[in-house]
Amino acid sequence: MTYFEAFILALVQGFTEFLPISSSAHLILPSAILGWEDQGLAFDVAVHVGTLAAVIIYFRHEVVTLLTALMGSIFKGERSKESKLAWMLVLATIPACIFGLFMKDIIEIYLRSAWVIATTTVVFALLLWWVDNNASLKDDEYQADGKKSLIIGITQALAMIPGTSRSGATITAALYLGFTREAAARFSFLMSIPIIMLAGGYLGLKLITSGEPVHLSILLTGIVTSFISAYICIFFFLKLISKMGMLPFVIYRLILGFGLFGFLIFG
């Protein structure tokens, strides 16, 4: 992997991890279209570290508050809206853990293809458009209950299918359940923290046991670039989402999906 490839892939990872447009799709496409080699486990770990650092630092106050409330509910029996939200985020993480444990190999073998990406990109673009246009937009993230959290968690699990988009699926589900756009995005971003940690830890263990060579300068490029681009993405997305809605991302996904279909058919 060259430094240019590392920079572009990390930039793409950072900007697409938290947008409803599928980071996995954009990371698979360079190898499918440009012929780039797979970035490897070490680089996957690096960009996970970068995006994880970005979301934790951006939501540092919320993370500290939620963790404190969670510990207080466990050890002191304290109850608050913050402790409830923390438990709902824990609940929302469980389906992806179970789904990933039993389905990850099947997805890696059978579903990491450009055809699957093109299809899911278009299908979930239309679903996002329909939900966003019919959403009641009345609740904040503190209105999440067990049922709503579990539903959002199931959509996060299904988003392991390439092209679906983790943030796209969870934001779509949250909007359908009555969350405002800002609340849907915040809930999605906060629930990304444990799942990115788990995914990064899993990839890290695979890296340790694989014996794959590690190029520190390439990895540092990936970490720094993905961190900066992810932080910028989160900042502007939350600032603009209430004004622009989801239509720009729907249009982008449709262009990307149909463009990929055209490349596969005529390229």
Rank of each mutant, 00 (worst) to 15 (best):
M1L: 06
T2Y: 00
T2D: 15
Y3Q: 11
I8W: 06
L9E: 02
L9W: 00
L11P: 04
Q13K: 03
T16R: 02
E17L: 09
P20A: 12
P20G: 06
S23T: 08
S23E: 05
S24L: 10
P30F: 00
P30Q: 01
S31R: 03
L34H: 07
A42Q: 00
A46F: 07
V47C: 02
V47R: 01
H48R: 03
V49C: 02
T51H: 03
A54F: 04
V55H: 08
I56T: 09
I57S: 11
R60Q: 10
E62K: 12
E62V: 01
T68M: 09
L70M: 15
K76P: 10
G77P: 12
E78H: 13
E82P: 05
W87T: 08
W87V: 14
M88P: 15
L89D: 14
A96S: 15
I98M: 08
I98V: 15
F99C: 09
L101A: 15
F102C: 01
K104R: 15
K104T: 13
I106V: 10
I106D: 07
L111P: 05
L111V: 04
W115Y: 08
V116K: 03
T120C: 13
T121G: 05
V122G: 06
V122M: 05
F124I: 05
A125L: 01
L128Y: 08
L128S: 09
N134P: 00
N134K: 15
L137A: 11
A144N: 08
K147E: 11
K147N: 11
K148M: 14
S149M: 10
I154E: 12
Q156D: 13
L158R: 03
L158H: 04
I161T: 11
P162S: 02
P162I: 05
G163K: 00
T164M: 09
S167K: 01
G168A: 10
G168V: 12
I171A: 12
T172M: 14
A173R: 11
A173Q: 14
Y176E: 12
L177Q: 10
E182T: 13
A183D: 12
A185Q: 00
R186K: 15
F187V: 10
M191D: 05
S192I: 11
I193E: 12
I193H: 08
P194V: 06
G200D: 01
Y202C: 01
Y202P: 03
G204F: 04
T209E: 10
G211K: 05
E212Y: 04
H215R: 05
L216W: 15
L216A: 13
S217I: 11
I218W: 02
L219G: 03
L219R: 03
L220T: 14
T225P: 03
Y231E: 08
Y231Q: 03
C233E: 01
L238M: 14
K239I: 08
I241A: 01
I241K: 01
M244G: 02
G245M: 02
G245K: 13
L247N: 10
P248D: 03
V250W: 01
Y252P: 02
L256M: 10
F261Q: 01
F266I: 05
F266H: 06
G267S: 09
